[in-house]
Design a protein around this nucleic acid. Structure first.
Lengths: 138, 138
DNA sequence: GGTATAAATAGAAATCATTTCTATTTACGA
DNA sequence: TCGTAAATAGAAATGATTTCTATTTATACC
C-alpha cells in the first residue's frame, strides 16, 4: 500500500480515504472490477460514495499506472491492479472465476516484424487480452 | 459480393437491399466504421434507414463471420470487413488514417505456452489489436 | 496546532450509444 | 401470385458514463 501512496503523491493526487479504500480493494481482489463492483465493495466501509467519484478515482489510478483498464465482453469498463507497473506485461483472465493474472512475457516481436515487412508499416502499440481457465477452474 | 451473399444464405439471412448496401460499403472501404459512419454512408443511397436496423445488420454480419467487431478507444463499436473469414487473423489499423489491414500471421504459441506453464492455466482465446502507421502515413 | 486554498466529493441531472418495442413492409418458398 | 416468417422504421426505453454545482476536505504554510 505504501508504495501506491507514493505513486499518488508523485502524481499530485491527494491521499484521501476514498482513494486509499479503492486501492485497498484491488490489493485484496485480483479480479477485473467494474465501477459498480468497486462501489459495492466500497459501501461496506464507507457509508456514502458517489458513482462519479468511483469513476473519477478509477481513471486517476489508471493514469497513474496503478490500474489497468480493459473492456469486458459486455463493453463495460473494468479495472485490475498492475503489480508490474513499470514493465510491459499483459493480463490473463479466467473466463469462469474472472481472476486476473499478470504475464510478464510478450512474444510480440515476431508478428511485429512480419507486419512491418509485409505491410511496410510502422507498428506502434498492441493490446492483447488473453482469456481461458485458471489453474483452479480448468 | 457474390460470395458474401452466399454466406448470408448459409446463415438463413434474407438478401435485402439494406444488407447488400452495408456489405457494399465495407467492400469499398477498408476502414473501421462505427454504426453512425455506416448510416451516414447508407443515407447517400437509401433515403430511409433506421439506426436500429444498422446495428442489427452489423451484428448479423459479424455473427456470419463477414465483419470483425472491435471497440475503438472511445469505446464505440466499430466494424471492419474480414476478407480472410475462415482463417485466424488479426487486424492492423493505422492511427492516422484509420485504415485496416489484415494480418494472416499469429505468433501466439510462445506466449500461450508460457502462460500454460507458468500459471498452470488453459488458454482459450486471445484478442490482439495492433496499431501504428500504415505505409502511406508513416 | 490553526488557516487559507485548491483539490476532492456527493448528488442530481444530462448525455449518448445501444437496445427494445410495435406496427408495417418485404423477401421468397410453395 | 400468395402466404408467412423475417426484416424494417421510428419512437421510446435503457443504462453506463459524464457533467455540473455546491459543499467538504487534505495539506502547504505559518
Amino acid at each position: 500500500m505504501q508504495s501506491y501512496l507514493q505513486v499518488l503523491k508523485a502524481n499530485r493526487l491527494k491521499i484521501t480515504p476514498r482513494r486509499k479504500a479503492v486501492i485497498d480493494i484491488f490489493i485484496r481482489c485480483n479480479y477485473r472490477l467494474s465501477p459498480y463492483d468497486v462501489r459495492a465493495k466500497l459501501r461496506r466501509k464507507l457509508s456514502t460514495i458517489g458513482l462519479p467519484t468511483v469513476y473519477r478515482i478509477l481513471a486517476e489510478l489508471k493514469n497513474a499506472g496503478i490500474l489497468a483498464q480493459s473492456l469486458s465482453e459486455d463493453r463495460q469498463l473494468r479495472y485490475a491492479l498492475c503489480t508490474l507497473p513499470h514493465q510491459h506485461h499483459h493480463h490473463f483472465s479466467c473466463r469462469k472465476c474472472k481472476k486476473v493474472e499478470e504475464v510478464d512475457f510478450c512474444n510480440f516481436k515476431g508478428i511485429s516484424r512480419f507486419i512491418e515487412n509485409k505491410l511496410n508499416a510502422k507498428v506502434e502499440t498492441h493490446q492483447l487480452q488473453i482469456e481461458g481457465l485458471c489453474s483452479k477452474c480448468k
